[in-house]
Write a protein that binds this DNA or RNA. Structure first.
Lengths: 167, 167
DNA sequence: CAGGTATGAATGAAAG
DNA sequence: CTTTCATTCATACCTG
């Protein structure tokens, strides 16, 4: 289980792109160094959904160890978080019965299960840049701020939930 | 970006759209035709945040190719736009440019103004509806200073409740 | 070579 | 508008 492939770390860093011929055409295959750093960020720093700003920085750092794009980082965190949550989802009600133990929750993998997320490190969040998304930044003139702006105004609930069905 | 090969594209183009095989999912699965049209609208006509009127019309048109609801169209545009922006965000550094470098809604429809979308005509179209579908131009519909009340007044129930009142 | 699993990528839906 | 969640597809890679 968990056949963590160890494709050497030659991929990009100092090795050659010998294998690149095959993989480059398709999806990104992270190197062990990249994975290590990503996990470090995830578990150590509590980074779970990095902002665009952080993604840029992370991908820039990881690029030292191999080809990588911003979206790779983005997806990695998305998936990692989602899968962790997904696995946990199984184990909710009733602790007695749970057959098909396909895979134990990686309790030891991260070790910090006790506290789950070691805080979000309240200090670092907005450290590097001060972008902070204030509503809509790119308000290019077709501003909606004045009138009935977004759809939220007309009852999102109605729109989606459709609780009411008047004609 | 969209190498997504939709394995089920016959959702309505070449057969009964009743059931595709295994579409018991709650989630809308657009057909290739629907996607093609949506992209056409997005890129050719610059439609990015269609108004309620437009949504209704678009969904009606797309319904020919498969089951679809207004909210699907709504979400599609929202997602498409958001993802395009987002992708750009972690790839480009937000250096310089603080002054409306924006993409105009691509009025380039000139010459390409085929009949694909019957109601997109730049002027207006006061048919029975009299909805006035602003196609391109930066004003995405709710720019009217006088009649800007469109949103708050339109019937959202139309989107979801639009079972088959049309035609 | 076939099968299974882990995981990158994509996107619909929705929350904020 | 922005961000996140959930689900699914596609594929790399391990295993027998």
């Amino acid at each position: 289980m968990e056949p963590q492939q160890q494709p050497n770390e030659e991929n990009g860093s100092s090795g050659k792109e010998g294998f690149v011929c095959r993989q480059s055409s398709t999806r990104w295959t992270p190197t062990t160094e990249q994975i290590r750093i990503l996990k470090e960020l995830y578990y150590n720093n509590g980074v779970r959904s990095p902002s665009a700003d952080q993604i840029q920085r992370i991908s820039a750092r990881l690029r030292q160890y191999g080809k990588i794009e911003g979206k790779n980082v983005f997806y990695w965190f998305q998936n990692h978080k989602a899968r962790e949550r997904q696995k946990k989802r199984f184990n909710t009600t009733t602790t007695t019965d749970h057959h098909v133990p396909m895979q134990r929750p990686n309790a030891a993998a991260n070790g910090n299960n006790s506290k789950l997320y070691p805080t979000i490190t309240p200090g670092y969040s907005s450290s590097s840049n001060g972008v902070l998304t204030v509503g809509q930044i790119g308000n290019y003139g077709y501003g909606s701020s004045s009138g009935g702006t977004s759809y939220v105004f007309f009852d999102k609930k109605r729109f989606i939930g459709e609780d009411d069905y008047d004609v």
